[in-house]
Amino acid sequence: MMKFSKMLLTLSLSFLCILIMTSSVYGEEKINGVSLADNVNIRETPKTDSKVLAKLTIGETTQILSNKNNWYFIKTSSGSEGWVLNDLIAADEEKDPIKRGIIATDILNVRKEPDTNSNIIHTLSKENKVIITNTQDEWYEIPLSETKNGWIHSDYVKVKPNYSMGKIIGDNVHLRKGNSLESEVVKELKLGAYIYVKNYSNGWYQVSTFDGEDGWVHNELMTVLFEDNIANTVSRSANRTSLKIVQEAKKLLGKRYKYGATGPNKFDCSGFTTYVFKKCGIKLPRTSSTQATVGKKVSKSNLQTGDLVFFNSNGKGTKISHVGIYIGNGKFIHASSGSKYSVIISDITTGTYNKRYVTARRVY
């Protein structure tokens, strides 16, 4: 009996150790991330031409399960899994498996394997930037293309956190201590200034300037920049033109509706869209029906920020009689001849405008 009890105790302790070790391993592997843009494509494989399985909204949290080259394999809160380019996710800095590096020598050989005797397959120059996706002894693995990797020696690389890059798109933008308009201003950032993007929360980007000052910038006043293949990797809701269109349109909220007016203080629906797009360097035809003939048709399920959305005012048939600008999250901005009789933001997914929706066009 004593012998059986000792055996049972030994087995129990062994099982407990396995549980603790397993918990520890999985605890270390859990890495949280936040989407830095709207309509970010989650792909079936880590390639920009791979099938899109789902999309992320800006600020949506994810769990990073693994990485390959400069892609994260993620899992969303709804259970969707797939691959996202690392530039589009702000990861936990301490646990991020991907780092960035700057070459610190005049010429650096990139080798096929992590060995000084391995074949040289590429060379890098001083100040070249690289993405580090793996380490082995004193070597870093870097992607040279979507299908080709190489190795560089760690002695010749300055390693930095895996921050995405951002660019200021407003004049004299306030860098604030916190993510609210009431927060103290740290400094002013000039139009076109580049910054590091560290996180996103409640409509604000957490950023760091090149001289090391940290703070928050409102998402309408900056855009996140991405490395290669931006057009295939992230929707236009993350690019500068789309953000500028939304910014210019929102400046006109509350302006009065007047049939035939094209601004700057009164608008009809197509006069409003023509005015906003002209401010962003894009010429549109004058009427809603002719605007519905330009660009490329897109489905309602694939709407992106900056798309033109069209409606039939009486809710019958497909004749175009109203137009607005999609601004994301099921909303659009337009000059309304309804009860508000002004430039307003409305919901496209429910109610009147859901019933009267006809089509959408992407014109840039």
Rank of each mutant, 00 (worst) to 15 (best):
L11S: 10
L16E: 08
L16F: 14
T22K: 14
S23H: 08
V25H: 08
Y26L: 14
E29T: 08
E29M: 13
E29S: 11
K30S: 08
S35Q: 12
A37P: 08
R43D: 00
S50T: 02
L53Q: 11
L56M: 07
T57D: 14
G59A: 05
S66T: 15
W71V: 01
F73E: 13
I74C: 10
K75N: 10
S78I: 02
S78Y: 06
S78H: 14
V84C: 01
L88V: 03
E94T: 07
K95T: 00
D96Q: 01
I98D: 05
A104F: 03
I107C: 03
R111G: 02
K112M: 10
D115M: 02
I120A: 05
T123Y: 03
L124R: 11
K126L: 03
E127T: 12
E127W: 12
E127G: 00
K129R: 15
V130T: 09
I132P: 07
N134Y: 13
N134S: 09
Y140P: 04
P143L: 05
L144P: 11
K148Y: 09
K148R: 15
H153E: 07
D155T: 06
D155S: 14
V157E: 05
K158S: 04
G166E: 06
I168R: 14
I169H: 03
I169M: 05
D171E: 15
V173Q: 05
E182L: 14
V185L: 04
V186T: 12
L191T: 04
V197Y: 12
V197S: 08
N199Q: 10
Y200W: 11
Y200C: 05
N202E: 15
G203M: 04
V207Q: 04
T209Q: 09
E213H: 12
W216E: 04
T223W: 06
V224L: 06
N229G: 07
I230T: 14
N232W: 11
N232Q: 15
T233W: 01
V234N: 10
A238I: 02
K244P: 00
Q247Y: 13
K251D: 07
L252R: 15
K255S: 11
Y257D: 09
Y259E: 08
A261N: 11
G263E: 06
G263K: 14
P264S: 12
N265F: 05
K266A: 09
F267R: 13
F272C: 04
Y275P: 01
V276F: 09
S288R: 09
Q291E: 11
V294C: 07
G306R: 14
F310C: 04
F310L: 06
G315I: 00
G315Q: 07
I320L: 09
I320Y: 13
I325P: 06
I327F: 03
I333D: 07
S337M: 01
G338H: 11
S342N: 12
T352F: 09
T352E: 12
N354P: 00
Y357F: 13
V358N: 09
V363S: 03
V363L: 02
Y364R: 14
